[in-house]
Write a protein that binds this DNA or RNA. Sequence first.
DNA 1: TTTTGTGAAAGAGTTCACAGCC
DNA 2: GGCTGTGAACTCTTTCACAAAA
Lengths: 229, 229
Amino acid sequence: MTIKRTPKRLKLGRKSVSELVVVRLILYRRILRDLAFSGTRYVFSHQLAALADVTPEQLRRDLMNVRYEGSPTRGYEVVVLEECIGAFLDPPTAQAVALVGVGNLGRALFAYFLGRRPLLQIVAAFDIDPAKVDRMINGCPSYHISEARTVMREKGINVAMIAVPAAAAQSVADTLVDAGVRSLLNFADVRLRLPPDVYVEHIDIGVTLEKVAFFARRPAAAEKDMGSP
Amino acid sequence: MTIKRTPKRLKLGRKSVSELVVVRLILYRRILRDLAFSGTRYVFSHQLAALADVTPEQLRRDLMNVRYEGSPTRGYEVVVLEECIGAFLDPPTAQAVALVGVGNLGRALFAYFLGRRPLLQIVAAFDIDPAKVDRMINGCPSYHISEARTVMREKGINVAMIAVPAAAAQSVADTLVDAGVRSLLNFADVRLRLPPDVYVEHIDIGVTLEKVAFFARRPAAAEKDMGSP
DNA sequence: TTTTGTGAAAGAGTTCACAGCC
DNA sequence: GGCTGTGAACTCTTTCACAAAA
């Protein structure tokens, strides 16, 4: 009966993909890498789905976004599928990442990225503490935050991680956006207010732990996860 | 035409609430605390919604889960609403939390919980490194992981955070479940396979950064966030 | 057979739109 | 007027179920 029409959401880039699909594709690829490393040649959707903790139907639907078809007899060829997902996900060229805040969390992030992820490298760290500035940290130069604009333009950085105390996060984010950042990963437990063309992802540890504690006292009903990323 | 019937998902606890609603309620409460601290007495839904980066309609719908009604003239009374959300979210008694892995990330987590969150306290830390075991870390005793079962039973811990290398995470998780944990927050970048009555939340930093990097190179379409937690 | 890829249906979550109230 | 609470509509996501393939 309703004659409504809400066109909305014109495709972005080539074809519009939801964040949920992107996250799962990233996850599938990681699992495929492990499989390839352990010598597996082929996987069926139900096997890969089990490893990723999703249903086989969901996996297959997600893979429709990638240009690759499996064989009904052998399933998916591990390395080929991994490459096809990569072709979909990866930037044409490596992306440089900045890290702001070199406290415990910042150092943990450095440790995380040591060795892996050649396409995403932390190439600059920032802080305000004079003791942490103008040094090399895990092979990466650190600067005072006041130099952000210059350094980030120079190195062409457009992705940054914020690992500073909550009180400083908004001002740091403003500085980064001013320095040309397009996309942010924020670990401080404040919601950042930024221009709509900047993509922000919050990893809110406090909220997440409260959530986990909340669901720790449910009756006994099995509930699925597939949560944060 | 289809005569299908899929009853499914019987309510859990009192009334079934989705994870998304729980996360947002936790977020609203944090913002209400800040507002109360800064002396604000009343908020309208559109103000609180703006601070939480959701629509006013969504905020109001989320609040339907909480036993509290606002006034059309003054909006919501900050401290009262905060308390009502607390009554919904909080455990009847404080919850004890364990932390496994006292590396950089583990120490960052300690720093995170210093002072705040009186209802969620890290009361035991575990590691395998002899240098980190049988000491006090931020006022919290640390034990070898082999003592987990005893210590956790003794202290009645049923929530744990896993901050160990990926290779060790599954085995740690198995140990914890054996020790009676009902709910886990996992920071290692592996998907844990656990019995369905254990609630698991993954904070997968690698996946999340790849996601952020992916969305850093979108055309220019404004996309909302409200992501991981 | 068992598996893949995919329309179609179901289920979740969000937004619209309006009644009722101050 | 401007606000809240909420049924109804809408949109997004997942699951079902089946044709086609090897």
